[in-house]
């Protein structure tokens, strides 16, 4: 299972839709936080979502694995529609990995246990096999020697790489990244981004909310710019950065790229 995920390079195919969002709307109470979101993500595509804070980008990707509930429209992940059906939600979550800004590792479990927990309890994998898979991915994020430490003993960058490995252990078909480098010291950002680049090169379908524009330029197939709960502009990275169309996009880029 592990080796298959690690070695197979999935090709981008026009008929293979990983995530489809159709006319999705979400409210927090009266506040209309996401407005008419339409997005189709092909398998193997790498999408970077940018935008000012409060623009709804995190909320949008959190809807894809139902950490947030949407009130209108449809979301399909791997052909499964997200509704109130708990079984469907669990099915989607098994196939969608997520990496958080604050890592959300389980502090009472060792690194290895963090990685084997879900394969053992969700995939019903034998413990020994789960540990092999976990070590495989810990090697890939270059911290196998930390396997028996606790998250509190690791640096932020190491913790985030563990979080990536933990998600990969479930052999996900889509990976969501919610500002994975925003809580890290400048010196640690690179090691996490390198891991993500490696993942992208292997053909993982990725949706990344990030402010790392260098990463977007290098890795993304498509950059999506959001403001006020809606998609304002999307384009391939070169066009997006060099020739933005919308006024808001121009303003945003002028603020962050000096």
């Amino acid at each position: 299972m592990a080796t298959e995920a690690a070695t197979s390079k999935m090709e981008v195919s026009a008929t293979d839709v990983a995530v489809e969002i159709v006319g999705m709307n979400k409210w927090y109470g009266d506040f209309h936080v996401l407005r008419d979101i339409n997005l189709k993500v092909m398998r193997g595509e790498r999408i970077v979502i940018a935008g000012p804070s409060g623009s709804g980008k995190s909320t949008m990707i959190r809807c894809i694995n139902r950490l947030e509930e949407h009130q209108k429209g449809n979301i399909f992940v791997d052909g499964i529609e997200l509704t109130n059906d708990l079984k469907k939600i669990d099915e989607v979550r098994r196939e969608v990995g997520m990496v958080f800004q604050h890592f959300n590792l389980f502090p009472h479990l060792t690194i290895l246990e963090n990685c084997t927990l879900a394969p053992i309890w969700v995939r019903k994998m034998p413990k020994k096999q789960a540990e092999e898979v976990a070590m495989h991915f810990l090697k890939r994020v270059k911290i196998p020697e930390q396997a028996h430490k606790y998250p509190g003993q690791l640096s932020g960058g190491q913790q985030q790489r563990v979080a990536i490995a933990r998600s990969l252990c479930m052999n996900p078909r889509v990976m969501l990244f919610d500002e994975p480098t925003s809580a890290l010291d400048p010196e640690m950002i690179k090691e996490v981004l390198d891991t993500m680049v490696g993942l992208a090169e292997e053909g993982m379908t990725m949706l990344c909310v990030t402010h790392e524009m260098g990463f977007a330029r290098q890795v993304a197939n498509r950059v999506i710019f959001m403001d006020q709960g809606q998609i304002v502009e999307q384009n391939e990275p070169a066009e997006f950065f060099d020739n933005p169309q919308h006024e808001r996009t121009k303003l945003f880029l002028s603020q962050i790229l000096h």
Binding site: N65, L67, D90, R93, M98, F100, A118, V122, R166, M170
Partner: peptide, 14 residues
């Protein structure tokens, strides 16, 4: 922290 529950949810734990 809420993140612990979200971490568990995102892995598909019941």
């Amino acid at each position: 922290p809420k993140g612990q529950a979200e971490g568990a949810d995102s892995l598909g734990l019941s």
